[in-house]
C-alpha cells in the first residue's frame, strides 16, 4: 500500500516557548488505514495535525500529504484533506444546514450537488430531522457530529480527526465510531488523535504513542499490547530491597522483566496472575513485606504507563 501521509522529522518550536512542542516526529500513514495518535493532552498531537493541514509551518523537517509537499504545495494539500478540529468550529446561531452549506461553498461546491452532499452528510451523522435548528440548541454530541460532517463535504482523501469525542455522551460517541468505521470502509484514510486508549484500541489499524512531542512507540494496537506480555504487576516494596530478591523474582517462570525504582517494583509477566503467586512466595520466604499491589490489564493505557511512567489521563 502507498503512503498517503509521510512525515519526516517534523519539529515545531513556538516563538517564546523554551521547548519545542513537537521534536522530530516521523511516521507514514498508509492509504486506507485508520492511524491513531495516542497521547495525553499537550503531547503535541494537535500541533502535528496543524502542521499536516498547513495551518502551522514546521520549524524543521518536511512532510507530504497525498503526495504534495506541505510547504511548497499547500493549496493542493488543503484541497485533499479534511480537518475536524478539536474545537466545535461551527457558527452557533446558524442552523446545521446553513453551517454545512457555507463550508461546502468555501470548498467550491454549489447548486444541487452542494445541497445533495449536505443532505447526505446530515443523514450520515443522523441529524436530518434537526437540520434547520440552530447549532447552539444542540447537545455536545450533536455538535460534534455536525463538526465531523463539515469536514467531509468536499470528500477529502484523508481526514484528520482531532479528539472528536471530547465532551460527548456515550450514544454520540458510538455514533461517531460507527461513522468513522463506515467512512474508512468506503476508502477514506483517517488520522485519529485521542487521549482515550479504548478509542485507539477499537478504531485504529496502527497507533503512534506520542508524549512530550515525540513518538515513543508505533505499531498495531495488538503488537503494542503484546509487548507487555500478559500484563504488568506493580508492587509497593521497602526502599532498601536486597538485590538478590530482585534477581530471584526475575528467575521466576512467567516473569519477563523486572524494573525497580525507589519503593516500586514493575514486573512484566506472560501471565500476571500466575506470576503473582510465585512473586508473593519469594517475598514471604525473604520476609519482605509488600505495601501495595496492582495488576494492570494488558492494554494501551498500560503500554503508555510502561513507556512513560505516566497515565494518559490525570
Amino acid at each position: 500500500m502507498s503512503n498517503i501521509v509521510e512525515a519526516n522529522k517534523l519539529v515545531k518550536q513556538y516563538p517564546g516557548s523554551p521547548e519545542p512542542a513537537v521534536r522530530g516526529v516521523s511516521f507514514a500513514i498508509q492509504q486506507g488505514e485508520i492511524f491513531g495518535f495516542l497521547g495525553p493532552n499537550g503531547a503535541g498531537k494537535t500541533t502535528t495535525i496543524s502542521m499536516l493541514s498547513c495551518l502551522l509551518k514546521p520549524t524543521e523537517g518536511s512532510a507530504t500529504v497525498t503526495g504534495f509537499d506541505l510547504i511548497r504545495q499547500p493549496a493542493e494539500v488543503k484541497r485533499r484533506i479534511g480537518l475536524v478540529p478539536q474545537d466545535l468550529a461551527l457558527y452557533p446561531t446558524l442552523s446545521a444546514r446553513d453551517n454545512l452549506l457555507f463550508f461546502g461553498r468555501i470548498y467550491g461546491l454549489k447548486g444541487s450537488d452542494l445541497r445533495q452532499r449536505v443532505d447526505d452528510a446530515l443523514k450520515m451523522v443522523g441529524l436530518s430531522d434537526r437540520a434547520g435548528d440552530a447549532v447552539e440548541t444542540f447537545s455536545g454530541g450533536m455538535k460534534r457530529r455536525v463538526n465531523i460532517a463539515a469536514g467531509l463535504l468536499h470528500r477529502p482523501e484523508v481526514l484528520f480527526l482531532d479528539e472528536p469525542t471530547v465532551g460527548v455522551d456515550p450514544q454520540s460517541r458510538n455514533f461517531i465510531f460507527e461513522n468513522v468505521e463506515s467512512l474508512n470502509r468506503d476508502g477514506l484514510t483517517v488520522l485519529y488523535t485521542t487521549h482515550y486508549m479504548e478509542e485507539a484500541q477499537r478504531l485504529c489499524d496502527r497507533v503512534a504513542i506520542i508524549d512530550l512531542g515525540q513518538i515513543i512507540a508505533l505499531d498495531t494496537p495488538k503488537a503494542l499490547i503484546n509487548s507487555l506480555g500478559g500484563g504488568i504487576i506493580h508492587l509497593g516494596v521497602p526502599p532498601e530491597m536486597p538485590g538478590s530478591l530482585i534477581a530471584e523474582v526475575e528467575r521466576l517462570p512467567n516473569v519477563q522483566g523486572v524494573a525497580h525504582t525507589d519503593g516500586k517494583l514493575e514486573i512484566t509477566a506472560q501471565h500476571a496472575q500466575h506470576a503473582l503467586i510465585g512473586v508473593i512466595e519469594v517475598f514471604n520466604e525473604a520476609n519482605v513485606s509488600i505495601t501495595s499491589l496492582e495488576i494492570l490489564e494488558p492494554n494501551l493505557e498500560t503500554v503508555f504507563l510502561h513507556l512513560t511512567g505516566k497515565r494518559l489521563r490525570n
Binding site: 493541514s53 498547513c54 495551518l55 493549496a75 488543503k78 484541497r79 484533506i81 480537518l83 478540529p85 478539536q86 474545537d87 466545535l88 468550529a89 461551527l90 457558527y91 452557533p92 463550508f103 468555501i106 470548498y107 467550491g108 463539515a150
Partner: peptide
C-alpha cells in the same frame, strides 16, 4: 475563539 477561523484557514481559501 469558536475555531471556524481555523477551519477556514485549512480550506483552500
Amino acid at each position: 475563539k469558536v475555531g471556524t477561523f481555523r477551519r477556514l484557514l485549512v480550506a483552500p481559501m
